[in-house]
């Protein structure tokens, strides 16, 4: 049994990570940084919490301290949720320790000899299976492991008064991003608007399809970033959201690999496209060839029946 440290922001992610570590026969040590222990860490069911206590609440600024801690306690691995802060902290620690690191690992396994996992490369065209001997670091995305431990308050807390924090990066301000109020991850059906939607008014019919099917409307990158029709948090793909809905329906979406990467986990993929040669036709279960201007209203009528 050895210590495996993890950093996670989301409570579910914390409990999934705890399950993975404990199932491998190791001790799950939850990390937190700052003035207090967040509820997501407190309830993670981990064997212990290691709390770097200081006024600074940016976990990234504790990379050096964390690296030293990992060495001192002979840790065999450290896992981080793949958020912007988690990834930065992970790679910074990996740099200090010159350790191998697996980014966005899936099928992660913790063995006595080290970590092994799979990760996608070339924008999702290929899979790389990797393993490391000795200490290694991995980042993971939501749902990387099936089981989660039940919510349970962690009793053992190690409190470290953190002194040598990196003060060279000063946070001047933080402004919450106004959420679009749509939880794509929870939607069983995703209706995805692509650049093939020529008029902004037509989004109304996609919204209606989403309401009728109990789903939500998302989009491709260009629809959000170039046209500004949606908030950036609503675009799907390798640089956007990764979703696992029951049904993904792409409307006017060409199906480039960077976009499709985000919905690989979908049970069923369907598309409405005028072009039979569009790449999405080859990566769908059902591709309906036709103009969305005609197909979408007919589909809405059929769903309402």
């Amino acid at each position: 049994m050895s210590k495996i440290y993890f950093y996670a922001e989301d409570e579910k992610h914390s409990r999934i990570t705890t399950a993975l570590i404990q199932d491998s026969g190791n001790l799950a040590c939850a990390l937190c940084f700052g003035k207090e222990i967040p509820a997501s860490v407190k309830n993670s069911g981990a064997n212990m919490i290691v709390w770097f206590e200081a006024d600074d609440d940016s976990p990234e600024h504790y990379a050096k301290l964390l690296s030293e801690r990992l060495v001192e306690t002979n840790a065999t691995a450290a896992l981080f949720e793949s958020t912007a802060r988690g990834r930065e902290l992970a790679a910074h620690v990996a740099g200090f320790l010159n350790a191998p690191m697996f980014s966005d690992a899936s099928k992660l396994e913790i063995k006595t000899e080290g970590l092994s996992c799979e990760h996608t490369i070339y924008g999702g065209m290929m899979l790389r299976s990797s393993s490391a001997e000795g200490f290694a670091i991995a980042t993971t995305q939501a749902g990387f492991y099936e089981r989660e431990v039940p919510k349970k308050e962690v009793e053992e807390i190690e409190r470290i008064k953190a002194t040598e924090i990196d003060t060279r990066v000063q946070v001047i301000s933080r402004e919450d991003i106004v959420k679009a109020g749509v939880d794509l991850a929870a939607a069983p059906v995703i209706i995805c608007a692509g650049l093939g939607i020529s008029d902004i008014e037509d989004l109304a019919i996609l919204e209606a399809l989403a309401v009728e099917s109990g789903g939500a409307v998302a989009c491709t990158r260009g629809v959000a970033e170039d046209r500004g029709w949606f908030a950036a948090e609503l675009y799907i793909g390798i640089s956007g959201k990764i979703l696992n809905p029951d049904l993904y329906l792409g409307v006017g979406v060409s199906g480039q690999i960077q976009h499709m990467y985000g919905i690989r986990g979908a049970k069923t993929v369907a598309a409405i496209n005028t072009d039979e040669c569009a790449p999405i036709v080859k990566s769908s279960d059902y591709a309906l060839i036709g103009d969305y201007k005609e197909v979408a209203p007919a589909l809405l009528a059929a769903l309402k029946k």
């Binding site: 191998p100 080290g114 290929m126 899979l127 790389r128 299976s129 393993s131 490391a132 001997e133």
Partner: peptide, 8 residues
């Protein structure tokens, strides 16, 4: 100490 193998 790092090993990897790729497939489509």
């Amino acid at each position: 100490g790092l090993h990897s193998q790729d497939e489509g």
